[in-house]
């Protein structure tokens, strides 16, 4: 939602907005993860990261398709992914940050997968059959992402001095982007009232407890929550990284809008 958008009122409008937010998160993270393809530290990890990227984009595509259906204006998943600008994208700022080194990629993946896991545990019971179906289908894959990234947090945290330093730096860097994951704005509140949205503020506690537990086991220090927290992704307010990512992602599709690519 750019600064000009109105808060949705009707159920379908709220659901549309809610689905697009989730889809944007996943598309943007999937796009970032796919940058590892062919450049990973080990073939096994190339495979694993490509696999998670593929899941993320798959989840996004399912959510966009359903959102477009709810909207009923003849748009499809690609219209939503390729023909909106950065001020219209609603993803969390955390997810658009450059991929960094493997430590950064893993720290982000762990924090976000854990968040997604807790969120989707709620969404699988959403009061909307199709949405709930998508959520429980995706949940299986999210479990794998969480396990994979958690194992790497342990390996890197409790590995060598260098890996410890790198992943600690990564968590320290990324921490300011964790605040907005739990913000409840008008859309979230209405979605919760309609019975298909989760109470995000409530997820914060179990999320933090699990993060504490894993980072502790990994001999890492949990960054201080009492610091500046970035915010705005859900309103279309982003860091400069997103525009460049979209320019690359959308250029071909937008250059030849009449061409068929599916």
């Amino acid at each position: 939602m750019s600064t000009l958008d109105k808060t949705p009122v009707k159920r379908d409008e709220i659901l549309f907005e809610y689905l697009v937010r989730l889809a944007d998160d996943r598309l943007i993270l999937g796009q970032r993860l796919s940058e590892w393809s062919g450049h990973g530290p080990e073939l096994e990890e190339d495979l694993a990261l490509a696999n998670i990227a593929l899941d993320m984009i798959g989840h996004a595509s399912g959510l966009y398709t359903y959102a477009a259906e709810i909207e009923g204006e003849g748009r499809d998943e690609d219209d939503l992914a390729y023909f909106r600008d950065d001020i219209d994208f609603k993803n969390f700022q955390m997810l658009e940050q450059p991929k960094g080194d493997l430590a950064y990629t893993i720290a982000r993946q762990f924090l976000f997968s854990l968040y997604s896991y807790l969120l989707y545990m709620e969404l699988k019971d959403a009061d909307d059959e199709q949405f709930a179906g998508l959520a429980s289908k995706h949940l299986k894959e999210i479990r794998y992402h969480l396990r994979h990234s958690r194992e790497w947090v342990l390996r890197l945290g409790d590995g060598t001095e260098e890996s410890h330093r790198r992943i600690q730096d990564a968590f320290d860097d990324i921490w300011m982007y964790t605040g907005e994951l739990f913000e409840m704005d008008e859309v979230d509140k209405k979605a919760a009232e309609e019975g298909f949205g989760a109470d995000l503020a409530k997820l914060r506690k179990p999320w933090k407890e699990h993060v504490d537990e894993v980072l502790d086991e990994a001999t890492l220090t949990v960054p201080d929550d009492n610091q500046y927290m970035a915010s705005g992704g859900r309103t279309g307010f982003h860091t400069e990284h997103l525009g460049h990512m979209l320019a690359q992602m959308q250029f071909l599709r937008r250059s030849y809008p009449d061409a068929e690519w599916t």
């Binding site: 796919s34 190339d46 495979l47 593929l54 998943e77 390729y82 061409a259």
Partner: peptide, 18 residues
Amino acid sequence: IERAPSLKRKKVLLAKVQ
């Protein structure tokens, strides 16, 4: 992969490279 012209094509290419 990052410039694939549709989500479907992006998935197909990612899966292939994988």
